[in-house]
């Protein structure tokens, strides 16, 4: 590990920000077309972020300010460890556990900051966000642990590389179809897409954790959201859809997967938080357990196409 790794890390952050923000803008247009509107400009998300960074902002004490920086720092650190098409800024550190624990730093920073604002809507939003996390994480983690057990590796990059070279049949989502479905449903929950967006519901709890953010704080939260989206989609893409052999393949697959979640989100109503938890513990959890039992006791899916 030398100075070049840090330069690569910085370049990864810049590239991810530009790519994901552009994609978010395009996805706003996709949502608009679903609703038979013309929609915003493709670079609207950049304008929104820079506008927010330009405004003054109100502080609610140092916990509020520090939480934002802690969340952004934690999330940016996580982005650097995500393997993209075989490239890693810091080789050998792309473990599933490293990523999930670093991601928690960002999540908790956000929760601390939002709760530090003292607004009751923010507390309700944080409580719902953490409940939602508990709901989608258990089915997803069962599937991921099954995968780690079956392939004897916890490295995201290695697990992605194992699926390549066999076309679609090599993807874990095809080898373990139930696990793939669980992963995509969990992705909807992670991204806060409908029907699992009760924690940011603007009409009911005034956008939940975001309620007291304005100006520069809000700008940081938007940047954080772009990075977080990248981490979550990349994790599912690498583990279940084979990552990408080249950077172009990776970006194309990424765009398709992310746009797919947007389209699902565009036609869905919203679950209440208790309905979301019940749903996750009923359908995806059952599917995840069945998938785990099949893989562990029959080996089906691990060596069937070898």
């Amino acid at each position: 590990m030398n100075a070049m790794n840090f330069v690569y890390g910085f370049l990864v952050l810049v590239a991810v920000f530009i790519f994901q923000t552009t994609l978010t803008g395009i996805n706003r247009k996709v949502t608009a077309r679903l609703q038979k509107r013309y929609g915003a400009r493709w670079y609207q998300q950049f304008l929104d972020i820079f506008k927010a960074m330009r405004k003054d902002s109100t502080s609610h004490g140092w916990v509020f300010d520090f939480g934002v920086i802690m969340a952004l720092g934690g999330i940016m650190a996580t982005v650097i460890f995500i393997p993209v098409a075989g490239f890693e800024a810091f080789p050998g550190l792309d473990n599933v556990f490293v990523i999930s624990y670093l991601l928690a730093v960002g999540m908790l920073g956000m929760a601390m900051s939002a709760a530090g604002s003292g607004n009751p809507w923010a507390s309700i939003g944080v409580a719902r966000a953490l409940t939602n996390m508990l709901a989608y994480d258990i089915p997803l983690m069962i599937v991921i642990f099954t995968m780690i057990f079956a392939f004897d590796s916890a490295s995201v990059g290695e697990l992605a590389a194992m699926q390549q070279g066999m076309g679609v049949l090599g993807w874990n989502a095809v080898r373990m179809p139930l696990g793939g479905i669980v992963a995509v449903i969990a992705l909807l929950g992670m991204l806060g897409k409908k029907p699992f967006d009760s924690f940011i519901a603007p009409a009911e709890i005034a956008s939940g954790p975001m309620v007291e953010y304005g100006g520069k704080h809000l700008g940081f939260m938007f940047i954080l959201h772009e990075f977080m989206t990248f981490i979550e989609v990349s994790l599912i893409l690498n583990l279940f859809f084979g990552g990408g052999a080249t950077i172009w393949e990776y970006m194309l697959k990424y765009a398709v997967l992310y746009t797919f979640t947007t389209i699902i989100s565009g036609v869905m109503p919203r679950f209440k938080i208790d309905q979301a938890v019940k749903y996750f513990y009923r359908v995806p959890l059952a599917m995840a357990v069945v998938q785990g039992l099949v893989v562990i006791f029959t080996g089906l899916g691990v060596k069937i196409w070898f």
Partner: peptide, 22 residues
């Protein structure tokens, strides 16, 4: 806001709280 006049074309949109709004 919706498909007939579509104000998002101009970059306009509703926000949930005064803190976020311009």
């Amino acid at each position: 806001m919706t498909s007939r006049f579509d104000m998002e074309r101009l970059g306009m949109g509703p926000m949930a709280t005064p803190r976020q709004a311009d």
